[in-house]
């Protein structure tokens, strides 16, 4: 299947680590950005030794049911950077806690969270920002914190690897799609992402986070109330400002920082 995509860089996914291990031996290594394991109930052994250095993304399906399975994937860390992609669904914070405890980076797979999930996201964000035990990046928080700190322009589309200008999702049937955010509401297909069409709505709403969100949370349901996720942006921005202020006062040798 990989050969059907020209010179594009590839993210290869499979439930079966043996299949992924084969890909890593097939001469495609230069084109492979990372591999995704979608079945955590399999055994990691075939993948542990193959393609050293190639990042492995462990895609968690059900965070509460699958979290004990994360333990079996730690041997990958010997030869690979490992990330756990965890869906923001009820109880996901427990899977995040375990993943970072195992030294896995984390990517939060977030669609349009309702108030209970926003509350859980706040708990995870607090842990990411303040707990000594969290030494791994938790995306999208990590990249946004750095973007706020460095005053850089960076959108969630890029951070979350969902920018339709950069990424295409190939379904199990071989259909090339712009990704699940562009699915039409009845699930019958995908609409073509028109650059800027959701951003215009954000602009008209005078959203303060347009530079980093860029309409990411306006899809797929256009009527989604963004207030909850905006509160997360505000915490991140505040943390970045605090960090900058701390480092500035440290650099200037003020007694406060010493």
């Amino acid at each position: 299947m990989a050969s059907g995509h020209g010179d594009s860089n590839l993210i290869i996914r499979s439930r079966d680590p043996s299949e992924l291990a084969e890909c890593l031996c097939s001469g495609n290594l230069q084109r492979i950005c990372h591999v995704q394991v979608t079945g955590l109930d399999s055994e990691p052994d075939p993948l542990v030794e193959k393609g050293p250095g190639v990042p492995v993304d462990l895609v968690v399906g059900n965070p509460l049911e699958e979290l004990p399975l994360l333990y079996r994937w730690t041997p990958l860390l010997t030869n690979h950077p490992v990330r756990a992609t965890i869906p923001v669904a009820a109880g996901f914070s427990k899977a995040v806690k375990l993943a970072v405890a195992l030294n896995f980076a984390v990517k939060l797979d977030v669609l349009q969270p309702g108030p209970p999930l926003v509350e859980e996201l706040h708990r995870v964000l607090h842990a990411y920002l303040h707990q000594t035990a969290v030494t791994q990046p938790v995306e999208y928080f990590h990249s946004l914190l750095l973007a706020f700190y460095r005053r850089e322009r960076l959108t969630l589309w890029t951070v979350q690897e969902e920018d339709p200008g950069l990424y295409r999702h190939v379904t199990d049937d071989g259909l090339v799609t712009p990704g699940r955010r562009f699915k039409v509401p009845d699930g019958s297909g995908y609409f073509v992402p028109e650059p800027g069409f959701v951003i215009r709505e954000c602009e008209s709403a005078r959203c303060e986070h347009i530079e980093h969100c860029a309409g990411y949370f306006r899809l797929p349901a256009r009527e989604y109330d963004c207030e909850g996720v905006k509160s997360l942006f505000r915490v991140l921005k505040g943390a970045a400002e605090d960090l900058r202020s701390d480092l500035d006062s440290y650099d200037s040798g003020s007694p406060k920082a010493r």
């Binding site: 979290l67 806690k97 375990l98 405890a101 035990a133 030494t135």
Partner: peptide
């Protein structure tokens, strides 16, 4: 899983 020192 409830322990703050799980990672240790």
């Amino acid at each position: 899983l409830e322990c703050e020192y799980l990672s240790l």
